[in-house]
Design a binder for these strands. Structure first.
Ligand SMILES: [Mn+2]
Ligand SMILES: [Mn+2]
Ligand SMILES: [Mn+2]
Ligand SMILES: [Mn+2]
Lengths: 218, 218
DNA sequence: ATATTATTTTAGATGAAACTAAAAATTTAT
DNA sequence: ATAAATTTTTAGTTTCATCTAAAATAATAT
């Protein structure tokens, strides 16, 4: 069985290696986990010993098949617990990440399956991220950043790229949640900012915002 | 904030000091936590430093007011999670202890209160043990061991003294659960064994059994 | 191509939580 | 009241996860 720390590392690798097709660097791993590169090196060596990570000194690391499987399972737990916290206990989507960060480390296979069944086998978490199935399979959905949408394009908000609490609170304040109807009214090529209509209310979004919202075109 | 290990120790002290009115010995503490007396000594010194335990070398330990408060809160979490596992997720009462043993260490004050509300503020866990309230208060209920009951006495099963999984499975097998109607049919003074009627079925209980069942007389 | 800069790894240290073996204190038995 | 047995504490290790500082390697700039 993995320690919480090991699980946090493979989960971080899981996220980081999605974008970067090459090996994940020690520094990016350390940064994501809010620790030091030397600590990340130590852990990569250990995970490599255990066969969970393919790691070449100075070249970065990638999850092995086993490691990927385990990471997907931790992500599954994390996202199922987030659904539970929001749907069952009534937390708002900006309150659940840190709690799920702890709950994901509870080891009890039957618990995960019972929770999944109780929640009705949800396919996405409260931030629109897909929940890996029992076998670690992830069903990605077609989606695009709002920033890539053209004038007059209509779409539905399906997920948040970086669901940090501050951004989620910003959306709360503007009454914007997943499933919102979004229409691009005007595009400012100068700085990439946008005027949009969300559920028939007008908003002005900087490119930071539009680069953090995934939508599905209608 | 306490570590999981510290929480497990104060919880063990919480149980052990209920019966033993004098200081809890290092060896009993170690035995309960399946560890060595030397490890218990180390931890008692640390908890004493932190003001959670009143500890005198060679004389045993008792929780301080602060320590008792914290311990009661861990017990509260443990028992609330047990209720959740049984009532909400459909686990049986012999499957939940080890999982709750992990869940009790999740630190999120709001989570506990939301869980408590979702469950309808239960007062007892699946084994009949009282759930401490927000302030650590425990509402004990009048109860007696089945072994103390007289012939023809009628009672209701209210809790299990030592709710170990094997004993719970034994009760499952005999279809006995909390709330069962129990009537003493015959008492064998020789070895303390008993013939009883539980929900109108006859059973033969050794004194080990009757000393592990708490009932409320009718 | 070499020098400068940045990244990564190693070496050595710390604190938490456990252990074993030995010493000290307490309890029990003669 | 001593001696023997038991319990408890201390001393010294181990493993894990982190850190800082220094050395090694890789990337970048001149
Ligand atoms: Mn985590
Ligand atoms: Mn999420
Ligand atoms: Mn525990
Ligand atoms: Mn219980």
């Amino acid at each position: 069985m993995l320690t919480s720390s090991e699980e946090n590392y493979i989960k971080a690798l899981f996220y980081l290696q999605q974008k970067a097709s090459k090996g994940v660097s020690t520094s990016s791993l350390a940064q994501r986990l809010d620790t030091k590169p030397s600590s990340a090196t130590d852990m990569l060596q250990k995970l490599s010993e255990k066969g969970l990570v393919d790691y070449v000194k100075y070249k970065g690391a990638l999850l092995s098949t086993d490691g990927y499987q385990l990471a997907a399972h931790v992500v599954r737990k994390h996202r199922l617990w987030e659904v539970f916290l929001v749907k069952t206990l009534g937390f708002s989507w900006d309150q659940v990440h840190d709690i799920a960060e702890q709950l994901e480390h509870v080891h009890a296979p039957l618990l995960v399956e019972k929770l999944d069944a109780f929640l009705g086998h949800p396919r996405r978490d409260p931030h629109g991220d897909p929940i890996p199935d029992k076998n670690g399979q992830i069903h990605q959905v077609e989606k695009a950043l709002l920033s890539t949408q053209q004038n007059d394009q209509e779409s539905i908000l399906v997920s948040i790229k970086d669901a940090n609490d501050d951004f989620l609170k910003y959306l709360n304040q503007k009454n914007i949640s997943l499933g919102a109807f979004i229409k691009v009214i005007a595009l400012e090529p100068f700085d990439g900012s946008m005027t949009v209509e969300v559920n028939h209310e007008t908003h002005y979004f900087s490119s930071t915002i539009t680069n953090n919202l995934y939508v599905q075109s209608l």
